[in-house]
Design a protein around this nucleic acid. Structure first.
Lengths: 204, 204
DNA sequence: GCTTTAACGCTACGGGTGTAGCATTAATCA
DNA sequence: TGATTAATGCTACACCCGTAGCGTTAAAGC
């Protein structure tokens, strides 16, 4: 894996992960989350994190490189809760539920996902964390398409990831890129469209 | 329109748009494009633009506010070429062509659109320019759905914008958010999916 | 031409970013 | 327990951001 893009948290070679190093990480990550919650991600500067954590700013720069690296490590640390795809009994219902979770993640205040997306344009670590997080989610979510195929809801040879992306991408597009105030039915609308397309033969 | 989000280029009230003011704008915008072309959008800092244009940095800050404002004004200036949606004879063909243009815009080096997206997270002017640019494109592109409906290719009561977004959003998602190296068939793939969905009844 | 004043030039400031070099502390291992 | 050295602390620096205050220049209107 490219060392330029992988998470930075364990100090480069991680040869001495003992007490002080671990304590530093704990203090810094705690400062990141409290800063995010209390002041939003605009306030998430390396200097602010250093000041609040009591860890020196050069240390933060050395280990996390930039604010995006801090976000990436925070996301990794918060990935303990394993996510399971919904199982409502229909492809449409499953996609609606997935989209609703995405809408919730994008409209939360503060939204870690939005912060990570913004940071991803300036920070390789943030870009990598964003990508691997969603690739992981989409891989798990493929299950709902496979179940639908087993139920005969979809055409033959449907590519699961394409169906998921067809449902989810418009939500990101409208809420993140176009910054449209979320229409109440946006999760449903594009879930239904994706499910309708999957119902046709040979999506991919 | 919210003065916070509209383009900043004509000095606030624009009471004296004459010779010097116009020359300043020309010099600054020329510096923006040459900087973008020669060094990429990472190098597009206000200070660099000021230095290259010979206009003082405080003047640039006053009129354009930040790098996003410069990008927004540049995009506006480049919007002279009016865009017409393709007319290949089929909805699928039209959507493929639209998506191919988006892929081209996003993979160009340097890509003004990618730069604008990145800037939109830090600059209200860039966010506004991005949104209004694509809303304009989507409004014009709706024509391809209307023609398809007239040909009987789509179900009744199809919402044109939803079809366009279904086709285009995955391209943005993969190339901009996930930063996946563009699969050769990405434009086609999602255009076909959107067209298939539009073929069903009542998309929206 | 003359006056008014919008727009620009300049200096200065407080912040954030990211790096370099060297001193200090403490984890690790013998 | 002591020696080694990773990791951190500290100072200093160059750059970019964005703003304030004030002087200067040149459009606009008479």
């Amino acid at each position: 894996m490219d060392p330029e893009t992988q998470p930075v948290s364990p100090p480069r070679g991680s040869a001495r992960p003992g007490g002080r190093t671990a304590r530093t990480r704990e203090r810094v990550l705690a400062a990141v989350t409290t800063l995010l919650v209390e002041e939003g991600y605009e306030a998430l500067t390396v200097d602010a994190v250093a000041a609040r954590s009591g860890v020196h700013r050069t240390t933060v720069y050395r280990r996390w490189r930039d604010a995006g690296g801090l976000l990436a490590d925070t996301l990794d640390a918060a990935r303990d809760e394993p996510w399971e795809p919904p199982d409502t009994g229909s492809l449409t219902g499953d996609l609606i539920e997935i989209n609703r979770q995405i809408v919730a993640a994008l409209t939360a205040e503060p939204s870690l996902v939005r912060a990570l997306i913004a940071a991803s344009f300036r920070s390789p670590a943030a870009a990598h964390a964003l990508r691997s997080f969603w690739e992981d989610r989409y891989a798990r979510a493929a299950e709902v398409v496979h179940r639908a195929a087993a139920r005969g809801e979809t055409g033959a040879g449907v590519d699961a990831r394409s169906v998921i992306v067809t449902a989810c991408a418009p939500v990101f597009h409208e809420l993140v890129l176009m910054r449209i105030p979320a229409p109440a039915d946006i999760a449903e609308r594009y879930a239904r469209i994706a499910a309708a397309a999957a119902g046709q033969l040979r999506v991919q």
